[in-house]
Design a protein around this nucleic acid. Structure first.
Lengths: 207, 207
DNA sequence: TGATATTAGGACCGAGCGGTCCAATGCGCA
DNA sequence: TGCGCATTGGACCGCTCGGTCCTAATATCA
């Protein structure tokens, strides 16, 4: 992948995260990536749609490196990994200063009904994310109650995190996400055999 | 409020829920509400922005009538009301066939960072919603553990529901929302003194 | 009947959109 | 030196956008 292509992708990713796909014009991307003109952009991408697809892929790659990687750390207890992963999501959002929500959730809300091509790609992203959590839960199954439904629990975790990031954006208050993260860990703890006191810190109401 | 105004508001609400605010043109609204032309529309609304604000208000009014009303039913046990409210959210989304997510969540994702006017209005909507849940939790406090944080729990409920509706939209599968609703009730149940077996049905893993 | 809103309908505006095309540069490499 | 590619820069296209303006037709009620 050429440098310029990555440069365009990064500029577009930032803009789309801030303003959404439709409200980010190709001219905005050109300005953001400091290209010389339209022809320069269309030298690298066939269309704005293609750009959008690749931005989504790249955002997921980044998320895989900076967030999901924690789920696969082999030396850490699986449930603690899950806790660290939730912390990482909070930290990632904190870095952005509350603005610019989840790159997936944003596109989902904007395009899920309007653009089938994006919908299926976003669905695939969430599925890959969920499958990572599922395999972690599988790894942790000796510590969990027998009747834990990994599919349902993984969806619950993702939905809650996505919703929490959205609320944080609206209220411009990272504390919202932090509080929900604590409660989410508590909920996961209720699936653990001994009550969840081991790996998932944060008892009821403890800040 | 004149009939025509309401007609425009309803048409716009449907379109904006489906396609978002930016992707709904004034001409679309005119076609949807069967107006004769632009001047006819601008006879009732000063701008598209004003229309958007009033659509948001109207959506919240509708949600107050059809959803939040359950939270205030005086003859039902508060925790059971909360359960019924969650069921109502599921039913509302089910009616829409999985498409068209939360009218608030959609606008939030699309406009929270880009348009301050919308952001503060959406924040107010979520705050009013949260306050209804808080006062219900206050009512239910004899049944709850002493250390339940009503502010945090109400935010958790809203975030999870919003996230779940979004996931349902992406996967086009109402079962996602139904599963998360069950888990959400279970989580609320963990805040109840006797273990939550009374008002909130649905034990662990029971479908 | 006449005065007054409301409704209808279309022409028009400046701006931005995604996208195409073209001509002129640099710039390394055989 | 000359070939080929990346880069620069701008003109241009058809279309849609939010919004304005102006003129009739139609309903309402004194």
């Amino acid at each position: 992948m050429s440098d310029r292509r990555l440069q365009i992708l990064d500029a577009a990713a930032t803009l789309i995260a801030e303003r959404g796909y439709n409200s980010t014009s190709v001219d905005d991307v050109i300005r953001g990536a400091k290209l010389s003109g339209k022809s320069h952009f269309y030298h690298y991408f066939r269309s704005k749609e293609e750009l959008g697809y690749e931005v989504l892929n790249r955002q997921f790659e980044r998320f895989t490196e900076r967030g999901l990687a924690i789920l696969r750390e082999p030396m850490i207890d699986p449930l603690e990994r899950l806790s660290l992963f939730i912390d990482a999501v909070v930290a990632l959002q904190s870095e952005r200063g509350g603005r610019g929500g989840s790159p997936f959730g944003n596109l989902a809300a904007e395009l899920a009904d309007a653009h089938e091509g994006f919908r299926v790609r976003i669905e695939a992203v969430f599925e890959r994310w969920a499958s990572q959590i599922r395999s972690l839960l599988w790894e942790a199954r000796p510590q969990l109650h027998d009747d834990v439904d990994a599919v349902r629990l993984s969806r619950f975790i993702i939905a809650t995190l996505e919703g929490a990031v959205l609320m944080t954006r609206v209220k411009r208050d990272i504390g919202v996400l932090e509080g929900i993260a604590i409660d989410l860990k508590r909920f996961i703890g209720t699936h653990v055999r001994d009550g969840g006191a081991v790996a998932l810190q944060g008892g009821r109401g403890v800040e």
